[in-house]
């Protein structure tokens, strides 16, 4: 019994070091997964917002800044930025349908305007040309038998 206890006591520092190493390894992996768990859902939201044509460039930059802070060890600063991005994302989600509708309307109008140019040119250009031709010669006088220039 005494021998067993002595044997266990000798192994205690080794066990402590092993546990400490395991804790370090575990903490590192939790940290890496932690930032993923924090940032990935917001990136998904930003993808969705961008599909709705909402400008998310500033939010993307903020998230990038948060990731850098996290990597440099400033977890609190990273959390603060992530929270502000989350708040802004929630606000923009409400505006997304209106922004998308405006975008679709703008694209539709642009395409329609571009498609309308050829027929309008076909109809209007000869008339405009004639109008300019006659306007520029308004003061001309027709003289019978005048020499041709």
């Amino acid at each position: 019994m005494v021998a067993l206890r002595a044997h266990s006591t000798r192994r205690l520092p080794l066990l402590a070091v092993t546990l400490l190493l395991l804790a370090c390894v575990n903490t590192t992996s939790v940290d890496a997964e932690g930032i993923d768990d924090l940032v990935a859902p917001l990136v998904g939201d930003l993808e969705e917002l961008r599909r709705s044509r909402v400008d998310v460039s500033s939010l993307t930059s903020s998230l990038d800044e948060a990731v850098r802070l996290w990597e440099s060890g400033d977890v609190e600063g990273a959390y603060r930025i992530v929270e502000s991005v989350r708040f802004e994302v929630e606000r923009l989600k409400g505006e997304a349908p209106r922004v998308y509708a405006l975008h679709i309307a703008r694209v539709t109008l642009t395409v329609l305007a571009l498609l309308a140019i050829p027929p309008l040119f076909y109809i209007l250009f000869p008339r405009l040309y004639l109008w300019l031709w006659f306007t520029s010669r308004r003061g001309w006088v027709v003289v019978r038998g005048a020499p041709r220039r």
Partner: peptide, 30 residues
């Protein structure tokens, strides 16, 4: 003739090509 038919046809073709290119660029952006 005030406006030559051939010149008008060429101008119309240029406008049609420009229009189609414009639409293609908008669609490509989308």
């Amino acid at each position: 003739m005030l406006l030559d038919d051939e010149v008008f046809a060429v101008l119309t073709a240029v406008v049609i090509i420009a229009s189609v290119l414009g639409v293609a660029m908008v669609v490509r952006d989308e």
